[in-house]
Design a binder for these strands. Structure first.
Length: 112
DNA sequence: ACTATGACTGATT
DNA sequence: TAATCAGCCATAG
C-alpha cells in the first residue's frame, strides 16, 4: 500500500479533457485519496514520460501554476495550456476552465 | 524510530 | 489581495 496509488492517480489525470484544468486536491479526491494532494504532485514527478500525461492541466487549487513564475517548467506549462485553448487571467487560469467531471463517467473510465 | 521535505490546501489574519 | 499557519501523508535519509 504505497506507490500502489500512482497508477490510479495517473489514470485520473488522463481523464482531464483537452482545454480543461484540475487541481492537485481535486485529482486526489477523484482518485479516492482525499487529503493527498501532495501525493499527486509526487506521482506526476515520477510518472513515466511514455504515459504522455496531460500534466500541464494540473495546477493549484487557486488556479495558479505550481511551478515558480518564470521557471522553464512554468513557461512550458503556460504555453502548452495556451495552445490548447486555456484562457489566463493574469497569473491565474480563468475559473470557467475548471474540469467538472461526471462522477459516474469517471468511475466507469477508471475501471480499465 | 525520527526528521525533513514536497509540482498542496483551507482557514485565518 | 497577500502572508501565515497548521494540517496533510508518502518518501527518503
Amino acid at each position: 500500500m504505497s506507490a500502489t496509488y500512482f497508477p490510479q492517480i495517473w489514470q485520473t489525470i488522463q481523464q482531464i479533457p483537452l482545454g480543461k484544468v484540475a487541481s492537485y486536491g481535486q485529482i486526489a479526491d477523484l482518485a479516492g485519496l482525499p487529503g493527498r494532494a501532495r501525493l499527486v504532485g509526487k506521482a506526476l514527478g515520477v510518472a513515466p514520460e511514455s504515459l504522455e500525461l496531460p500534466w500541464q492541466r494540473v495546477l493549484r487549487s487557486n488556479l495558479t501554476l505550481a511551478f515558480a513564475e518564470g521557471s522553464p517548467q512554468a513557461l512550458l506549462q503556460r504555453s502548452l495550456l495556451l495552445s490548447e485553448g486555456v484562457v489566463f487571467q493574469g497569473k491565474k487560469v480563468a475559473p470557467a476552465m475548471r474540469w467538472h467531471p461526471d462522477l459516474a463517467e469517471l468511475l466507469y473510465a477508471l475501471k480499465y
